[in-house]
Structures are given as C-alpha cells and as structure tokens.
Write a protein that binds this DNA or RNA. Structure first.
Lengths: 193, 193, 193, 193
DNA sequence: TCCTAATCGAGACGGTACGTCTGGTCTTGAG
DNA sequence: CTCAAGACCAGACGTACCGTCTCGATTAGGA
C-alpha cells in the first residue's frame, strides 16, 4: 500500500536550480536561444540530470515558466461586469506585453509544433483563467446585468481573442483604450433590457 | 546610368527548384523539420546558392510558401454583409484547418521569435485580406446595412481573432456553426436601426 | 591487540557475485567492453559496493580473472628437458590461444598504461610459471643434460618470448610444430657434450 | 580516365594540424589520455572534420604516430652479422625505451582489442623492419657466415621477441649487455663450421 | 533486547567525452 | 558572375559511464 522510496532521494535544490536557470534564460534571451547545455551550466547541474527528469527542452522550460508564474488569480468582484472584465483583461494585457509575457507568446508558438507544449499551457494557464472569466459572467448573469441564455463561451472568446490576435499576428498595440472599446462593443449585444 | 549585368545570370530554374522543394517539405513534415541541407539536396542545388539569395531558413520557407499560395482573393459580393463575411471567414477557416493552412500557423509561430517573418506574413498575407474585409464592411455601410461611425477595425478584429485564438491556443474546433454564431453575435451591435 | 570487527561483516556472497560477473563478461566480450555499471547490474550489486573494495575496473577484472584461473601448475617431470619444456610451453600456448587466454593478452595490454595491472599479472601469473621453467632446467642441469653455467634466465626468455611476440605482435600462428622447432633451436646451444 | 575533383579540396594544413596534435598529445600523456575533443581543440579544428576522415580515435593516433615516425631504415652492413644485428637491435631497443617508443608499446596494447590497429602496425612498422633483418641474415648466409638451410624466420623471432617480452610483460631491463648475450646465444646454433 | 557500527541495495548526482547533426561560411573549378 | 560540390568551424544534441554521494534496510557483536 505504501510507496517505497529506495535510493538517494531527488534533490529539491537541484530541481529548483534547473527551473530558475531555465526561467531566467527564457526571460533574458527568449525560448529560441535556450539550450540544455546552457541551463546545465547556469544551474551548476549535470546535463544528464536534466535529461533524467525532463524529456526535452520544451518540458523543462514550461516547468520553469509555470513554476515562476504562480500568480494570485483572484476573481475581481466590483459589482459591475464591465469593470470586472476590464480588470481581468487589463492585467492579462499588461502581463502579455511585459518581458515575461513575451515568453508566453513564445510558448504558444512552440505549441504549434509540439502538442505536449500546447496541452500544458492550455491546462496550466488558459483553463484556470477561463474559469475566472466564466465566474465573472455568471455572477453578472445572476445579478441580471446580462441577458439570459447567452453563449458565454463565445463571449469569452470574443473578449480575449483580439488581444492574442494583435500580439501574435497583426502587431497592433493593446492599450487600455482598445480594451475599453473591446469590452463595450462585445457587451452591447449582451445587456439585459 | 544602366546597371551592368556581368557574368552568368541567376538561374530562374534553380530559384524555382529551391522554392518548390521548400514548400513541399513544409507541407509534408512541417516547418520544424525543414533544414537548408534538406532543401539543397531535394532541389539539387548547392547550399551556398541558397544562402546567396536568402539570409536564413525562414526567408526561403516564407518565399516558398507565398510563392505556392498565390490565391484569387476575390471580393465576395452577395448583397448581404452576413453572407459576404460568412464566405470570407469560412474560406479562411477551411484553409487554416487544411494541411497547407497548418503551415501558416507555423509561420505565425516562427514570427514570434523572428520579426522579419512577422513582417512578411503581415504584409503578404494579412494586410491584403484585411483590405477585403474592410471593403465588404464599407459596401455594407454604403448600403446602410450597418450603423454609421462603426469602428470597422475593431469589428474586423472581432470577426477574425476568434479563429486564430481557437487554432493557435485553445484547440477548440472552428466549424461553420461556430462561424455562424460568431458573425451573428458580432453584427448584433452593428446593425442599423 | 586484536582487530575489532564491529558492524556487519562483508558479504562473501557479494564478493563472489562480483568476481564471477566480471569474469564472465570478460570472456564473453573482452576487457574493453566491461563497465562497472554492467558488473553491478549483472551481479545484482550496488556500484558503491564495488568501489568500496576495488579502486578501479582493472582491479576487479584482474581479481575476477585470477580467481577463476586457479590452475594446477604441476611441474612436468618426464626425465627429458625437451619433453618437459614441450609440455609446459604447449599447455601455455593452448591456453593463450583459447578464449580465456585471449583475456590474459588483453590484461597485458592494459598493463601498458596501468602499472598496477602489470605488477599484478607479473606476480600472480608470470612469476610462478617462471619458477617452474627454472625448476625444469635446473633438474636437467643436475642430470647433466645441459651445459654448466648456462644463463637460465636468458634461456627462459628465449623459450617463451616468441609465443607472446607472435600472439601480441605479428599474429603468426603458434602451433605444436613451431614449438618443436623453437625448443630444438634454443636447446642446441645448451646441450652438454 | 581522369578522376574528377569536384568541390573544395581537402585542406592539407588541417590534416597536418590534426596529426601533429594527436602525436604531441600521444607523447605527452599517452594513448589512454587522448580524446578526439582534445585533438580538435589543440589542432584548432572541428570535431566533425576529424570524424570525416578517420573512423575513430585509434585511426587518427596511428596516422599521427607513423606520420611522425618516418625513419631512415638503412640496412647496416659492417661485414659481420653480429655487428649488423647489434646495430639494428640496439637502435630498436633505444627507440622502444624512449618516450616515443613507449607509444608503440601502447599501440600494440591497443591492437589487442582492435584488429585494425594491429593490422596497421604490422604493415607499417614491423613488416619493413623484418625485411631488413632478413636482408642482414641473407647477406651473412651468402658470405657463408651462417649455416645453410637455417630457419631465418625463427631466428628473427628469437632475436626480437625477447625485447618485447621484457618491455611488455616482465619489465626487465633491455640494455646493451643483454642484447650482446642475446645475439651471441641465438647465433651459436647458426654458425657455419 | 536494545545499541552501535559497518555493509549493502538503490539510485541521484556532477562530470567528461562520445559520435552525430545542422547552420552557415569558404574554396575550388566549370560554365 | 553564378553555380555545384563539398570541406570546414562552431556548437548543441542526447547517451553512456565514471566515481561519489545520500538514504534506509540489514546484520553482526557487545551492553
């Protein structure tokens, strides 16, 4: 019934050193420039140890990223959908446009050719945040701020997709004014009365 | 005053061989698996020749891709915005979900770490298509199908962003039913009267 | 005054398992292919245990070899030097050309870069056998089969060196006919009267 | 009929740099301590280039050794077999006991587990020298210094084997006095009259 | 029966070198 | 001047063993 733990236990210190090294290098020079050899050197750790616990570069880097990006994820609750959404979307936008957020975009890029990576950022990043958005909208629904029977999933897509569209594709700026207009427009069709 | 063209002229045959080789390999195994060495071998061309005319892998591959994807780009004109948009968005969606379209997503991914690539697909792919969308909406405006003073740029973002959001990030399906709901919802706030 | 033997005593079973594993692997695939890791696995023993008792690979392997090659070493005594020598040299030759003997040649090879190894095979293999050869020759001297005041050491070198010369260097065969001629020629200059 | 020589020709400079580096390291620290990586670094050459032209470490090192050890190989001709042999054997002995000669012993060692190596030193080193010994003995035969119908091959084995036997196995010294006695004893059975 | 001390297995770890691969540059001679 | 052929450097890849190191479980004799 009990799991046996034979042999020398895995060093937590080493694990952290690897993840920090990976994350630092990620922020400094971007995903593309990272090498396992570099991580190993920076972390003062043997390459073999890295390969022992992670199958490839993407896996280490993802772990490093999410290990460092454990955030609060509080649900804003001002009493107004618009404000709640503005808070959530703004904070996402300012993260994405920071140097740390750039990394997330690179991981999304990596996910196009590595489905494990895609799986990871969906589960570890997008899914939890989507639940929050949904909670915001459901509360608003309960307060009768919104029409009944709205397609909340579509609504969420409409609220978030443009941020990534601009950052990943068109390169247009994502500023508070844009977010303001975005929320306003998307919610027009959803207001009750 | 005239530019002199001394020596052996550049071989058009060679140029085409390189671009086709690049494109074929792109469709077959994806961007990541492409190597200049592979292209050189497949095209029966020296590596040095490739480097002579393109600065790096991404440049050749982009050229190969856009060289092969010269499409019609007709402006749909059914007399109904919804239908026009449905035609344009559907055809984009079916392209993006095809094996050739997958390549575009990979190029977008590549663009996250190589701004030249980003510049290229913006200018050669997205900009022309955006003009068409704008034309559709402006015609509709002229027909008074839409309210005056709409933020057309925002509208276009809202119509296209969700496709890429789903394909690049969430992995949710992009089917005709989704497109239908998307267009409907986005246009609610824009209809005149 | 007495040595204290505190703690758990060394396991004889383990010692044997290591030596047998080493010897088997030695005969199967040769010295070069042996790894401590392999021995440890095959013997069902921890690497650390091996390093506890032997300083390096060569030491274990040597022990394994000599542990398995404890031979009779009887002194032939037919009454005739030639025959006695023929018996001894032939049996050496047939050992050296067997798969087990090949190992001895590999150990000699190893001895060129590891003086401990050289020391070991000299003391544990060659010295005892040289004493026998000397005994044979001294008996013959006592029987007046040989001249007085012969340089027995030189004689022994001349009798054995060619075997190793052929096996280690020239690759020429070492067969009974060769041994016959060898002994005959070497003893010509040594016969009394 | 003509061999075509397409492409960039192999760099002679690079080839030499590799062989010298290999040889220097061989003499300095012995065969065991040599690494391809070390040679590559010392020669200022890419590892890939080394692997392009030589299949493994032994091959490079052998080439380096024989490239550096191109010797005169004159046939001594004093008119006396004993003296001729003494000259040849002495010069071999002093080579073998020098730091450069130690390398040859290490190559012989390597040859025990790599038959290509064995083949090489037989063809490139031992065979030519054996021909000289034979020439010396044949001249002596022609001068009637030696008996007719002697087994010259055996004679040569007896003259050279003890040197290697002592150096490779017993560790006994190989000095002029020993060589003197060796030659004298071996030739006793061969003198005419 | 408990205590003390050494041995042992399992296996993590920092290293070093392996032999391979690709990117990008350079050198030749033919066209 | 262009091109094919192909040699070359740089540097990361992922693997294999090395020899060292915990950790917990065993196994003796002595208290």
């Amino acid at each position: 019934m009990m799991e046996k733990k034979l042999g020398r236990p895995r060093s937590e210190e080493t694990r952290k050193a690897i993840l920090s090294a990976a994350y630092e290098m990620l922020v400094e020079n971007g995903f593309k420039s990272i090498t396992i050899e570099g991580i190993s050197e920076r972390a003062g750790v043997s390459k073999a140890t890295i390969y022992k616990w992670w199958p490839n570069k993407a896996a280490v880097v993802l772990d490093g990223f999410f290990d460092a990006t454990v955030s609060m994820l509080g649900i804003p609750d001002t009493g107004s959908v618009k404000e709640d959404l503005f808070i959530q979307i703004s904070s996402l936008a300012s993260f994405l446009t920071s140097s740390k957020g750039k990394v997330l975009l690179e991981l999304i890029a990596e996910g196009q050719s590595d489905s494990n990576v895609a799986q990871e950022y969906r589960n570890r990043y997008f899914h939890p945040r989507r639940l929050i958005s949904k909670a915001i909208l459901e509360k608003a629904e309960a307060r009768h701020e919104l029409k009944k029977d709205l397609d909340l999933e579509l609504l969420i897509d409409l609220l978030f997709a443009p941020l990534f569209y601009r950052l990943l594709i068109t390169g247009e700026p994502v500023d508070p004014f844009f977010i303001e207009r975005l929320i306003s427009y998307v919610l027009i069709g959803s207001e009750s009365d």
